[in-house]
């Protein structure tokens, strides 16, 4: 019997990296966001003028900067996975720390955006566009926070030498979730801030 196969975290050939359970979670999340995206798009079809006018009042630059922030953060997570595959725990933790820091930048930019809207008296009940804009972005915002918490746990374990070349499924699992958070914003930004 090959004892090596019992001790190395090798996922089944053809399956995605990380724990398989996270992928069911990821696709459940994507489904929820997909329904949200579809609802937004079809609601827009009935209120085109309202959506176009309201969209003009959004801060498109901050939406774009946040897209760049999450894309870069996702790339840092790729580098963290690469580092642990080389057995470089400290580097892995550092890349994850950088990714979390960019997650923090996203949060701060978004809070400024929310503050500006709430200060202007805009709320969920202002109109259909803002109902979707606020609920969609707040829903995504909560996912960013959850992703940062997951990455923080993975980073702490990496820093304490809890992962190795042979055992790093946890890093890949956290990475996969974070990429999902990035993927959702990549669709949300053009849909809500750009398409008119």
């Amino acid at each position: 019997m090959n004892t090596q196969s019992l001790t190395i975290d090798a996922h089944e050939p053809g399956t995605p990296p990380g724990d398989l359970a996270i992928w069911f979670f990821i696709f459940a999340e994507l489904l929820a966001f997909g329904v949200f995206f579809g609802s937004y798009a079809f609601a827009r079809a009935h209120h085109v003028e309202l959506f176009n006018q309201s969209q003009q009042l959004l801060n498109r630059a901050s939406g774009a900067i946040n897209a760049l922030v999450l894309i870069t953060s996702s790339y840092f997570v790729v580098r963290a996975v690469a580092a642990i595959k080389q057995g470089l725990s400290r580097q892995c933790a550092n890349w994850l720390g950088a990714a979390i820091a960019l997650g923090g930048v996203f949060i701060v930019i978004k809070l400024f955006e929310f503050h500006a809207k709430f200060s202007a008296g805009i709320s969920l009940s202002t109109n259909t566009f803002y109902m979707f804009y606020l609920s969609l972005t707040i829903f995504h915002f909560m996912h960013v926070i959850l992703g940062m918490v997951i990455l923080a746990f993975v980073m702490a374990k990496a820093r304490s030498g809890g992962y190795s070349i042979e055992h790093h499924t946890g890093v890949e699992t956290g990475a996969s979730y974070w990429h999902m958070v990035d993927l959702v914003w990549v669709i949300l930004f053009p849909l809500v801030y750009v398409i008119r």
Binding site: F37, A41, H46, I195
Partner: peptide, 12 residues
Amino acid sequence: VGGMIAIAYLMG
């Protein structure tokens, strides 16, 4: 998702 967005846009 892309198809839904495109169809809804064209409906608009």
